[in-house]
Simulated scan of single mutants.
Amino acid sequence: MRITGLRATPVNLPLEAPLWWTGGHYPGTSKTIVEVETDQGLVGLGEAPSVDVVRAIEALGERLVAARADPLDIAGCEALCLPPWQIVQNTDDASAVKAFGAVEIALWDLRGKAWGQPLYKLLGGAVRKAIPFTEYFGFRAERDGRGGETTPEAVVDYCLAMREAHGSSLFEGKLILGDPLLEIRTVRLLREALGPGAVIRLDSNMQWSLSTARRVLREIEPYDIRNYEDPVATFEEMKALRQHSAIPFSSHVPDLRRAVALGVPDTIVTNFAVLGGIARAVRFIGACEAMGVGFWCYSGDSGIATAAYLHMVAAQPWITEPSQSLFRWQVADVIEGGPFRQRDDVVAVPEGAGLGVDLDREALARWHGHLVEHGPLDHFHDPLAPGRFRRLPLH
């Protein structure tokens, strides 16, 4: 089997209503969908976490097609696409890693399709097949009758509605309006309403200064917060914060060496393409296990990257905590039957060959057209100060 073509299609994946986060309104995500074509008619699917790597992915495809590369020889494909890993890291050019990581996911999908096996079996078999994900909550603007949770009481009512409708007991959210008292009050009301059995995790996106984070975490610690993601801007500030709080921390920054050296964060939360693909994610998670650092998966992706998460968590005993999820709010996807939706906190791992998902070409064209018409989704629009970017920390 030889690689004969590669397509990189940027798409928008909007949410039903914008969510407040540290940078302003979060309206959804923009991704790059990768298709690797072969002379045997099989097509592998991959996904990059951004659209700034489209040209880089296309350049990698030109190399792979010119070499008539064997897609099952993933190490050989990497040697065609990337210089030595240490040099790539030394140049601070993460785009090369993300670009190849998206292609590499597609190569694993091809491997599964060629051998007629789901990805989790290629990774060693399943230790679980019901994969847990959190519901998401936060302060949201209203759009077409959706969202509109702008008070602590509305956020609580939303979470209770998710529990009633979907059996949800795992919750993660952003309470980001720059007001520590608002966050403290919302957390208290959530715990009182959801009871002691619900999991509550928080994500600050680095909004707090160290002094404010000390105050906030001191007040919310009695409400049994399972994890707090990026409460402050750096690992060094997390280390100082650890002296004042027993709440575990996580971060999207995949710097395992520094995490081990400083003792924080407790968990890394990231995207497989950011790590360089499936094979490097396996090694990264193994290193986390050896060092006692947790791992779970990112949110806001299409069904392609989500399927990769499902297979990886199925095969990795070390990933025991639920991964993040914006599934309930996603109105767009590029796979048939997508987006995934959890029921009773879990999604079943796909049993089809490779990633086990099929591309919905009509949906791909629709959401690519959305990007062409509107541009990539802007995560940094602040309706309170149009045309100006927010500064950190917020308080």
Rank of each mutant, 00 (worst) to 15 (best):
T4I: 11
R7M: 10
A8G: 04
P14D: 02
P14Y: 02
W20A: 06
G24P: 01
G24Q: 02
T29N: 08
S30I: 09
K31N: 06
T32M: 05
V36C: 11
L45Q: 09
E47Q: 08
A59G: 12
A59Q: 14
L60S: 12
L64F: 11
A67Q: 10
C77Q: 10
L80R: 09
P84I: 10
Q89Y: 15
I105N: 09
L110P: 01
W115A: 13
Q117T: 15
L122H: 05
L123P: 09
G124F: 01
F133C: 01
R140Y: 14
T150M: 12
T150R: 15
L160S: 00
A165W: 12
L170D: 07
F171C: 10
E172T: 14
L177I: 15
L177Y: 15
L182K: 14
R185C: 02
V187E: 00
A193P: 02
P196L: 12
R201H: 05
D203V: 07
D203T: 00
Q207S: 01
S209Q: 00
T212R: 11
A213H: 03
A213I: 04
R215D: 08
L217R: 06
L217F: 14
I220Y: 13
Y223K: 09
E229W: 13
V232R: 00
T234Y: 11
A240P: 03
L241H: 09
Q243Y: 11
P248E: 11
V264A: 04
P265S: 06
P265T: 05
P265W: 11
D266P: 01
I268P: 03
V269S: 00
V274I: 13
L275Q: 07
I278H: 05
G286H: 11
G286A: 01
C288K: 05
G300N: 08
S302C: 07
G303I: 01
A307D: 02
A307G: 02
A308T: 08
H311I: 06
V313C: 11
A314Q: 08
A315K: 00
W318D: 04
S325H: 05
L326Q: 09
W329C: 10
Q330V: 09
E336C: 08
G338Y: 06
P339W: 02
R341M: 04
D344G: 01
D344S: 03
D345R: 05
D345E: 02
V346F: 10
E351A: 06
A353M: 01
L355I: 10
V357R: 00
V372S: 07
G375N: 03
H379Y: 15
H379Q: 09
F380H: 13
H381W: 15
H381P: 02
F389Q: 03
R391E: 08
L394V: 07
H395V: 12
H395E: 09
